[in-house]
Amino acid sequence: MTENYRPTKAVIDLGAIEKNLAAFKERSQGAELIAVVKADAYGHGAIEVANRAVESGVQFLAVATPDEAVYLRNHGFQTKILVLGATPASFLPVAQKEEIAVAAISLEWLQMAAAAVEPGLLPLKIHLKVDTGMRRVGVLTEEAPIAIEFIRQHPFEFAGIFTHFATADEESGELFQRQVREMKSVIDQVDDPQVLVHVSNSAAAIMHPELAYGAVRIGISMYGIAPSPYVEEKMPFKLLPALSLETEVVHVKKVKAGETLSYGATYRSEKDEWIATLPIGYADGMLRGLQGQDVLIRGERMPIVGRICMDQCMVRLNEQVPVGEKVQLIGKQRDGLVRIDEWAEKLGTIPYEIPCILTKRIPRMYH
């Protein structure tokens, strides 16, 4: 067992993930849940999250890449697995052997797949991706009838059909409504109960339960993060954040008035100040743009001052504290709370990105 000597760690509450999934199960009125564990489960740890999802009754996992799918199979997962992104010809015989479903993302891809599959193996499981508005991958709506017919005429298993909404996390506008209409017209052409229909991501599952169809894909909100401020305001149930980030003070010193801190001398103390050094930096995913972000010490907010270094950063204290004092970077401490959303706002990005940028150097601890 590897021992972690540095006190910096991400703590993952698997119970929160289980409760979030249960809330989505109830919201989706019996539709199957597809737990999206791509990108190492959005930085939370794919194996541990997938294990808890399966233990809680989920029997369908989704990933972004072929390698992520094989990784799950190699760790013993026998559930249904779907690769949401592009897959090369070289992977398709592996997908047949491992019973991994893949996304058909274009008419050209289907032609390639028909030539690449190995006879004698199980039919390749295909979920047809329909591009109703994202313009990322997928057959266009007008191409869907051709794709459906092609799948049925070749040695594939037509396992599912899906799309992805571009603006489901915003107040419903013309693009969302157009995507819904286009996808419904395609679904009507399938007319086969054996083909699993899944169109909803987390935001759509929250805001539009009537679009649950056969399954819903739960990604970011499985981890307790709302897809957008708009959705968070409208939430019909409470999401429980799964990730917290913590460390300890490793050094404390009193800095005199007028002295500068860290690279570039961008911070100058206005008076004598107690400064604590924390063992976390941009190599851990605590990017330099977080200068000025608050952390929690003894439940009180205290700001990061000076430029964040590769491995360390400094915090201005309200009072002297000892080495070893606990520091909460994300999450709750006493009556204080630092939300992932704060980091996202500070960095000019979305909350999805924050757990994904926390590097492997930060160990994940589970409870």
Results as ranks from 00 to 15, higher is better:
T8V: 04
D13A: 09
G15D: 14
A16Y: 08
F24Y: 15
R27Y: 12
G30N: 07
A31R: 08
E32F: 01
I34E: 09
G45S: 10
G45D: 06
A46M: 15
E48P: 02
V49S: 12
V54G: 09
G57E: 15
V58N: 13
Q59T: 15
F60I: 06
L61H: 15
A62D: 09
A64N: 10
T65F: 08
E68K: 03
A69R: 07
V70G: 01
H75D: 06
Q78G: 12
K80V: 00
I81L: 12
V83F: 02
L84A: 12
A86D: 01
A86M: 05
F91K: 08
A95Y: 07
Q96E: 11
K97V: 12
K97C: 08
E99I: 10
A103I: 02
A103T: 15
A103E: 05
A103Q: 08
L110P: 00
Q111M: 02
V117N: 02
G120Y: 02
K125R: 14
I126M: 02
I126G: 01
K129W: 01
R136A: 01
G138S: 06
G138T: 07
E149A: 14
R152Q: 13
F158I: 06
G160D: 11
T163D: 11
H164T: 14
A166M: 01
S172H: 10
Q179V: 13
V180T: 09
R181D: 15
R181S: 15
R181G: 10
K184D: 14
V186T: 10
V190H: 04
D192W: 00
P193D: 07
V195I: 08
H198A: 05
S202N: 13
I206R: 01
I206H: 04
I206D: 11
R217E: 10
R217I: 07
G219Q: 02
I220K: 02
M222Y: 04
G224D: 11
I225Y: 00
P229M: 10
V231D: 04
E232D: 14
L243H: 03
K254L: 12
K256H: 13
G258M: 13
S262F: 01
S269D: 05
L278S: 09
I280H: 00
G281E: 11
D284L: 01
D284Y: 11
L287K: 11
L290N: 14
L290I: 04
G292W: 07
D294R: 14
D294A: 15
V295L: 05
R301H: 09
M310F: 04
C313G: 06
V315N: 04
N318C: 04
V321R: 04
G324E: 06
E325G: 02
Q328G: 05
D335M: 09
L337K: 11
L337N: 14
V338E: 00
A344R: 01
E345G: 03
G348H: 03
T359W: 06
T359I: 07
R361L: 09
P363L: 05
Y366M: 11
H367S: 05
